[in-house]
Every structure is written in structure tokens, then in C-alpha cells.
């Protein structure tokens, strides 16, 4: 997958997550899809940054730590940890409604800020057309 493929997939996951976060939806599935939207953006950075390497789930946290430093705090590590809680919720369903709502809002901030950061990169921009 190219970086742009991942950007598009992230946007699609964001839309699907919003659709699933409703009274008739499943909040564990919604949480996982929203986590996926964040993970896709992190994978762009993991794959392009030579000092990062994807080995396991902890690699996402390494990437978020790296990004917080590289973006001088624009991309926030604690926002990532809230996104990570959504991934945990998919497996365990342990978040209260308020916690889930709060993590959802913060994860969206993470995605928005990471997207803005990636916009500065040509690799994550739309492919040029002839």
C-alpha cells in the first residue's frame, strides 16, 4: 500500500466509525475502526522513517513517541494512548460510555493533527496526475 492508499483508508475508517457509533451500532467495532484510522496514519510514518520498524503492536507507540518529538508536540503521545484504549475496548469492552466518548473525541484530534503533519510530506500527498 502506498502512503496515499493509507490516507484514503484512514478517511474511510473514520467515516465508517462515525456510522457505527450510534445507538444501533456496536461500540466495540466502532472503536476498533477508529483505532484503525489512526493506525493507518502511523504506518505511513513507520514505513518511511528509517529509525522506525514495525515488529509488534508496541511499534505504534514507538512511532507516536517519535512523532511527538519530531512534530515538537503537535502530535500528542497521550492522544495516541487514548486511541490505544479504543483498541483495547475492541477486545475487552471495558470503557465506560463517558470514557469511550472522551477517547473517541481525543482520537479524532490525534488523527486530525497527524493528518495535518503528514500533509507536509509529499509522500502522503495525492499522486500526481499526468
Amino acid at each position: 500500500m502506498t502512503p496515499w492508499d493509507r490516507r484514503l483508508l484512514s478517511e474511510e475508517f473514520l467515516t465508517r466509525s462515525d456510522a457505527e457509533f450510534n445507538p444501533s451500532g456496536n461500540d466495540q467495532i466502532a472503536a476498533e475502526i477508529l483505532w484503525g484510522a489512526a493506525a493507518q496514519l502511523l504506518l505511513i510514518e513507520i514505513h518511511r522513517e528509517p529509525t522506525l520498524n514495525f515488529t509488534d503492536h508496541g511499534s505504534y507507540r514507538d512511532a507516536a513517541t517519535f512523532l511527538q518529538a519530531k512534530s515538537t508536540g503537535t502530535v500528542v503521545l497521550t492522544d495516541f494512548d487514548c486511541a490505544n484504549k479504543l483498541h483495547g475496548h475492541f477486545y475487552h469492552g471495558h470503557l465506560s460510555e463517558s470514557d469511550l466518548r472522551s477517547c473517541r473525541r481525543i482520537t479524532k484530534r490525534f488523527i486530525q493533527r497527524l493528518g495535518t503533519y503528514l500533509d507536509q510530506s509529499t509522500e502522503a500527498s495525492p499522486p500526481h496526475t499526468a
Binding site: C82, G88, R109
Partner: peptide, 22 residues
């Protein structure tokens, strides 16, 4: 965000993914 991340520590331990999540 800071509070959510901090409370996530305990949830990660209680549900067994503390180390797996980095």
C-alpha cells in the same frame, strides 16, 4: 487526553495488554 492516557495504564494491566501495547 492526559487523564485518559493515565487511566489507560491500569486498564492495560487489568486486561493483560500492558506490555503488548508497549
Amino acid at each position: 487526553s492526559a487523564y485518559g492516557a493515565a487511566t489507560g495504564i491500569l486498564q492495560a494491566v487489568d486486561h493483560g495488554y500492558f506490555h503488548a501495547f508497549g
